[in-house]
């Protein structure tokens, strides 16, 4: 292996390992939007049986979150929070989409995800995909996820708990953190729908 190739691999590895942390640390868009989170095309299977892709989502800003239905803690907290923020925005709340992607396709079938997102009392686009599709979209959005075996033969999934905002052109527009207050989140959502 040539020295430059090895260096390139190293740089890539460092980038890949830093991206989720960098994402969670900063809430602003990078300079070059064409290379930002979510800039590559993606396709998933929607809960309603139809595809969900960068193409189907275009035209409306969206907030995207990655998790799994057996996550009893941060996933429902985050989705309930998104539903609450939408309600707080009044009429503007309908002007952005909420997307939940299950990173546990082995367990969460599209119909399961549909029933799950229905619990939150507001339209949420549920989706998942093959392992290859999930690997691609999480890399695309700089989201970390990892299957972790648990004692007893079961498994859990470690995953980024961040909400990523995309504008109506499909460009990265910031992130929401679970530790910020409602006012801070609304201040990020409002310009998206303006």
């Amino acid at each position: 292996m040539a020295r430059t190739d090895r260096l390139r691999l190293l740089v890539l590895a460092v980038f890949a390992s830093l991206t989720p942390l960098a994402l969670s640390a900063c809430g602003t868009a990078p300079q070059n939007k064409a290379e930002g989170p979510g800039s590559a095309p993606f396709t998933l299977s929607g809960a309603n049986g139809r595809p969900v892709s960068d193409y189907t989502l275009k035209g409306k800003p969206y907030a995207i979150f990655f998790g799994f239905t057996r996550c009893p803690d941060v996933c429902p907290t985050t989705l309930a929070r998104m539903a609450h923020l939408r309600k707080a925005m009044g009429a503007d709340g309908a002007k952005f989409a909420i997307v939940f992607v299950s990173v546990d396709p082995e367990h969460d079938k599209p119909a399961d995800i549909g029933r799950y997102v229905d619990l939150f009392g507001t339209p949420i686009i549920g989706a998942t995909g093959s392992k290859a599709q999930i690997d691609a979209i999480t890399k695309n959005f700089g989201v970390f996820y990892q299957k972790v075996p648990q004692p007893g033969g079961d498994y859990t999934i470690d995953h980024s708990a961040i909400v990523i905002l995309m504008d109506r052109k499909g460009h990265f527009a910031g992130t929401l953190s679970d530790s910020e207050d409602e006012k801070a989140s609304l201040a990020k959502l409002k310009p998206l729908v303006a």
């Binding site: 989720p20 942390l21 969670s24 995953h159 980024s160 953190s177």
Partner: peptide, 9 residues
């Protein structure tokens, strides 16, 4: 930690 949810039994 680090914005990543880790659940453990």
């Amino acid at each position: 930690d680090g914005g990543i949810m880790r659940m453990r039994r």
